[in-house]
Write a protein that binds this DNA or RNA. Structure first.
Length: 821
RNA sequence: GCCGCUGUGGCGGAAUUGGCAGACGCGCACGACUCAAAAUCGUGUGGGGAAACCCGUGUCGGUUCGACUCCGACCAGCGGCACCA
């Protein structure tokens, strides 16, 4: 054994060993309990960064830990290989997007392999592989048949920089999720997935996601945005039209003073004949800041009280939500209030705050004073005819009932969630498998003609890549229905389609005749632990849940939720900011691995913070991690002669020095702590801290009595076993130095003996009135009276107690005595 | 504006159920080894104070024998949503 820890030498050796022994290859084996551990697969940008490293290391520790616990562990890796950057790189460097992508994959794979991750590389997939994306096309056809995929023209989000449309989830605060360009609206004919027909199920099943961080579940619930209300028809005076309005506040119906409809509402054209008015409506600002509107000249009738309400076209009513029209109640809706104030429209109070003592904020208005802002809370109805005097919640159901009975309206549920637009006007993606025929219209490509292959040799120029529509070999085809000439759909699919089911493909990546092998999927799924960034809280995670539900409906899989537990790891921060090229605070994993060895990098990533929190990068902290591993190495080296080649059959120690018996207890306590820290939300930082304590204690121990050596051997072995998922290379090397032939991965995870974790002496804390006054060592397990006696006998306490009367004495077993005077 | 999360030494972070605040590490200081330095090892390290002691988990209040932990109000920082009717 070398006297110095040399990570470069041992890491390479063990990585080769693992590969030769095929240690991470797994197969379906129903006789074994399974564990599916998955990290979000990367986009092959070319280089691994610290965020990837942290993500994969966390997953690797979990996978190795579960394997040692006897689970059959599926731990795969692959590539989210379609997407824009390949096109940009192609333009910049004059290469084929496909070549660029596959080159990056091999570069990144080599980098990832240096981290020593326990992947079954036989299951590697790349979404740009025709054998993968053909199933995207296959799912699309199934969904088309079921009416879950459809084409429609609508205003959609357009990113001028990416030159493609974006789904709602992909617009973050008005900016493109990928390039931060301001998104505009553009009318497009495009394909949608009907995610809204699963809105209720997606929402309801949020309740079952107990293994997910609560905030992610909340974000999904909010995104789906279910709200219950009523649709009410307001007849247009003097016309054969009615304006359908959606509201959740039917209790404020009597307070409506005007009706407001979206600029793009189809009724606008019908109601407005005056060209001047029409021009003013069209000129309304798109800026969501200021509320603007134009009186259409028409009036609508409130179905409850027959009042005439002016109809306004305004810029703050969304066409996409509800019915695209609202009843405006300025007294009880802040937006309507602002609008009414601007245009001098009346304000009519119909909800009075509950008795004053409960009112949070009163904004006046009850006795005719001018109000300063809308009262939006619930209260008691006033000025509402037969409904006056009811509480808001009661009034909502009574009015809804009444509207339904009189056929004036009906109860409805609305969602904020919109259908998922999946067409992308880009080259590097999955071709959408339909053709357009002049006589037959839209015709799906027959299943047996899949995959529709994306051409991988395209004319790349310095200014751009042609869209598929410009590649004649691709577009020209014949109609599968009539055999006549036809042209292919030239939009490709959103890459989020690719990542919505890749975790299923890993279960049987080579299955050729169908997307997944049902047996493999029913054994491995769902994913037991999924790990990735919080940025996908709605995007990828929502789409994957949707896809899972669709696949269940199609009959491919039997369950409805893909990810049992989710861990959203924090960002890697340096100098107070997320690592980025522009900030110049990037730390290169490769450089660190060369300098310190990957075990050090792994250990630091795990030790510096619990996985869900941001990790503050510290170069000195890395030194500390490196120092710790060297200390473990030195420790084994120091006792090497005593330790190697002996395997104790039983760990019973009768003759021990007192120091050694303390070490036995510490060892069992450490096994317990490390195990519990991993089980309890993967808190590797505290697990490592307790391992450090154990190493410190072993280092302080010099064997003297007969069994001391045996115990030392036991403690060091346990220590190496506990360290092995965290820093696997050094653990393997030390394990072999300790005289073992086979990989430490075959060893069982250590178990502790609860009896041996108990302290036989404890430090009793003595408080007077809750303040710490003294401490005394006592035997564990003494009864309360004896403990009290010991406390009062303590000279310091006796002195302080002089002349005081005892009111009460509280004894907490094994911990403290509090004397109240 | 609404919803959510987080506030603990010089720094990263600990503290199972309300029971010794600051585990472990970094940094710093001193010491050993060395001609010297690095590395390594050892000791110390929340603040104040010579000490006894006092103060201390964002702020203020409450519950309790006892509060980083529970309750109420507020302040600060971060994140999500933002005309969703």
């Amino acid at each position: 054994m070398n006297d110095r820890y040399d990570p470069q030498q041992i890491e390479k050796k063990w990585q080769e060993h693992w590969e030769q022994e095929a240690l991470f290859k797994v197969s379906t084996d129903p006789s074994l309990p399974k564990f599916y551990c998955l990290e979000m697969f990367p986009y092959p940008s070319g280089r691994i960064h610290m965020g990837h490293t942290r993500n994969y290391v966390i997953g690797d520790v979990i996978a190795r830990y579960k394997k040692m616990q006897g689970f059959n562990v599926l731990h795969p890796m692959g590539w989210d290989a379609f997407g824009m950057p390949a096109e940009n790189a192609a333009i910049k460097h004059g290469v084929q997007p496909a070549d660029w992508t596959y080159d990056n994959i091999s570069l990144m794979k080599a980098q990832i392999k240096k981290i020593g991750l326990s992947y079954d590389w036989d299951r590697e997939i790349a979404t740009s592989d025709p054998e993968y994306y053909r199933w995207n096309q296959w799912f699309f056809l199934k969904m088309l048949k079921k009416g879950l995929a459809y084409k429609k023209s609508s205003f959609v989000n357009w990113c001028p920089s990416c030159e493609t449309v974006l789904a709602n989830e992909q617009v973050i605060s008005g900016l493109c999720w990928r390039c931060d360009t301001t998104v505009t609206q553009k009318e497009f004919d495009q394909w949608f997935f009907k995610i809204t027909s699963f809105a209720d199920e997606l929402l309801k099943d949020c309740d079952s996601l107990s293994g997910w961080p609560e905030r992610v579940v909340t974000m999904q619930r909010n995104w789906i945005g279910r709200s219950e209300g009523v649709e009410v028809e307001f007849k247009v005076e003097g016309a054969d039209e009615a304006i359908k309005v959606f509201t959740t506040r039917q209790d404020t119906l009597y307070g409506a003073t005007f009706v407001s409809i979206a600029r793009k509402h189809p009724l606008v054209r019908k109601l407005v004949n005056d060209k001047k008015i029409m021009a003013r409506i069209e000129a309304l600002s798109e800026d969501p800041g200021g509320k603007e509107g134009v009186f259409t000249g028409s009036y609508a009738v409130n179905p409850l009280n027959g009042e005439r309400l002016p109809v306004w076209a305004s810029n703050f009513v969304l066409m996409e939500y509800g019915t695209g029209a609202i009843m405006a109640v300025p007294a009880h809706d802040q937006r309507d209030f602002e609008f009414a104030s601007t245009y001098g429209l009346p304000v009519k109070v119909v909800i009075a705050p509950p008795p004053l003592c409960f009112a949070k904020r009163s904004s006046g208005g009850i006795r005719g004073q001018a109000i300063t802002k809308a009262y939006e809370d619930d209260g008691v109805l006033v000025n509402s005819a037969r409904f006056s005097g009811l509480r808001s919640d009661e009034a909502r159901s009574r009015i809804a009932e009444f509207l339904e009975k009189e056929a004036l309206g009906r109860r409805v549920v609305n969602y904020k969630l919109r259908d998922w637009g999946i067409s992308r006007q880009r080259y590097w993606g999955t071709p959408i498998p339909v053709v357009y025929c002049d006589s037959c219209g839209i015709v799906p490509v027959p299943e047996d003609e899949l995959p529709v292959i994306l051409p991988t040799k395209v004319p790349v120029t310095g200014t751009g890549i042609p869209s598929l529509s410009e590649i004649k070999d691709f577009t020209g085809t014949r109609c599968p229905s009539c055999g006549g000439t036809a042209r292919r759909e030239t939009d490709t699919m959103d890459t989020f389609v690719d990542s919505s089911w890749y975790f299923l493909r890993y279960c049987s990546p080579k299955t050729g005749d169908r997307p997944v092998d049902p047996e493999a999927v029913s054994y491995w799924m769902p994913v037991d632990q999924y790990i990735g960034g919080i940025e996908h809280a709605v995007l990828h995670l929502l789409y994957s849940r949707f896809f899972t539900k669709v696949l269940k409906e199609i009959g491919i899989i039997a369950y409805g939720e893909p990810f049992k537990r989710l861990l959203t790891q924090g960002m890697v921060i340096k100098d107070g900011a997320k690592m980025s090229k522009s900030k110049g605070n990037v730390v290169d994993p490769d450089y660190l691995i060369t300098k310190y060895g990957v075990d050090t990098v792994r250990l630091f990533c795990l030790f510096a913070a619990p996985p869900e929190k941001d990790l503050d990068w510290s170069d000195q902290g890395v030194e500390g991690a490196s120092r710790f591993l060297s200390r473990v190495w030195t420790l084994v080296h120091r006792h090497h002669a005593l330790l190697s080649g002996r395997e104790d059959t039983q760990n019973i120690f009768s003759q021990m020095s007192s120091r050694a018996s303390g070490l036995l207890r510490k060892t069992h306590q450490t096994i317990k702590r490390v195990t519990n820290d991993i089980e309890r939300n993967y808190h590797f930082n505290t697990a490592i801290a307790s391992l450090m304590e154990l190493v410190n204690e072993i280092s302080a121990c010099t064997p003297s009595e007969a069994d001391d050596t045996k115990l030392l051997r036991f403690s060091i072995r346990q220590c190496v076993l506990l360290l092995s998922p965290l820093a696997p290379h050094i653990a393997e090397e030390l394990w072999s130095a300790l005289g073992h032939d086979r990989s430490i991965l075959h060893e069982a995870w250590p178990v502790w003996d609860e009896k041996l974790t108990m302290e036989d002496e404890i430090e009793l804390v003595i408080q007077i009135n809750g303040k710490l006054r003294s401490r005394v060592m006592i035997h564990a397990g003494l009864d309360d009276d004896t403990v009290k006696e010991r406390a009062f006998n303590d000279p310091k306490i006796a002195g302080l107690m002089k002349g005081k009367t005892i009111k009460k004495v509280v004894v907490v077993k094994g911990k403290l005595v509090n004397i109240v005077v």
